[in-house]
Amino acid sequence: MVNIVLVSHSPKLVEGLEELLKQVVGQVSIVTAGGDEDGSIGTHFDKIQAAVEEAASGDDGALVFYDLGSAKMNAEMAIEVAESESVRLVSYPIVEGSYLAAVESSIGNSLDDILASLEKEFG
């Protein structure tokens, strides 16, 4: 299955979204990186890098969703450091996009199929 990474300035946002996604599609790997290193609002490269590397360890690839500016920048750097061609940063709504991706992953759709569905829905 395709793994999902959630990157946000808010730890509570990604914790809640992870809870929602796991209720719907429990078997899909959801990895989060929310907030600064002390849990406050912000982003932290090391947290994001660890999440990307964990998700990249799967065989079917991973999609990284983010909320705002520095989350995107840090996720881009983390993907570059991970040197995994199967991890993709996507610019779709973090809630609706990750929900769609998680459902599609749970039914066995490939990374490319999920990307096509996201583009069709939000592109």
Rank of each mutant, 00 (worst) to 15 (best):
I107T: 14
A78N: 05
V81G: 07
G35M: 13
M73Y: 05
A75D: 06
G42P: 08
E54Y: 00
V14R: 04
D46M: 14
N3L: 00
M77Y: 08
E85N: 11
A101I: 04
V28G: 07
Q49R: 14
E76V: 09
F65P: 07
V25A: 15
E54P: 01
G69S: 14
I4D: 01
A33P: 12
V87G: 08
S29K: 15
S117L: 15
E80W: 07
G26I: 07
E80G: 11
E121G: 00
K22T: 10
I30E: 05
A33C: 11
D59L: 10
V24S: 02
V90E: 08
E83C: 04
G26D: 13
E83L: 06
Y92M: 00
E104S: 10
V25R: 07
A71F: 04
A33N: 11
Q23P: 01
G34F: 12
I4F: 04
H9T: 05
P11L: 00
L100K: 01
I94V: 15
F45G: 02
V5R: 04
L89K: 10
L111S: 00
E54T: 14
G42Y: 09
L17C: 03
E18T: 01
A78S: 13
E54C: 01
Q23W: 01
S98F: 09
G39D: 12
G39T: 11
S10L: 11
V81R: 15
A116N: 14
E121L: 04
Q49W: 05
A33F: 10
E119G: 13
H9P: 08
S29V: 09
E83T: 01
S40P: 09
E37R: 12
G61N: 05
D113T: 08
G61K: 03
A82L: 07
F122C: 14
D67Y: 12
Y66P: 06
A51V: 08
E83Q: 14
S110A: 04
E104Y: 03
D112R: 02
V64A: 06
T32K: 15
Y66V: 14
K47T: 04
S91G: 14
A78Q: 06
L21R: 06
E121W: 03
G34N: 12
H9M: 10
G16N: 12
L118R: 07
I30F: 03
P11Q: 02
M1N: 07
A55I: 06
Y92E: 02
L115R: 06
I41N: 08
E85A: 09
E85K: 11
A116S: 15
R88T: 10
A101F: 04
L6G: 07
M1F: 03
A50H: 10
G35S: 13
I79C: 09
I48A: 13
F45C: 02
D59T: 09
K12L: 12
K12H: 10
A50N: 14
S105F: 02
A51S: 12
Y66K: 06
A55S: 04
V64P: 01
A101K: 02
N74M: 15
L13V: 13
E85M: 01
Q49N: 13
K120T: 13
S106Y: 09
E18L: 00
E83G: 07
A78F: 08
L6C: 04
I79M: 11
G42S: 10
H9V: 06
V52T: 00
V7F: 02
S40R: 15
T43F: 14
E76N: 09
D38R: 14
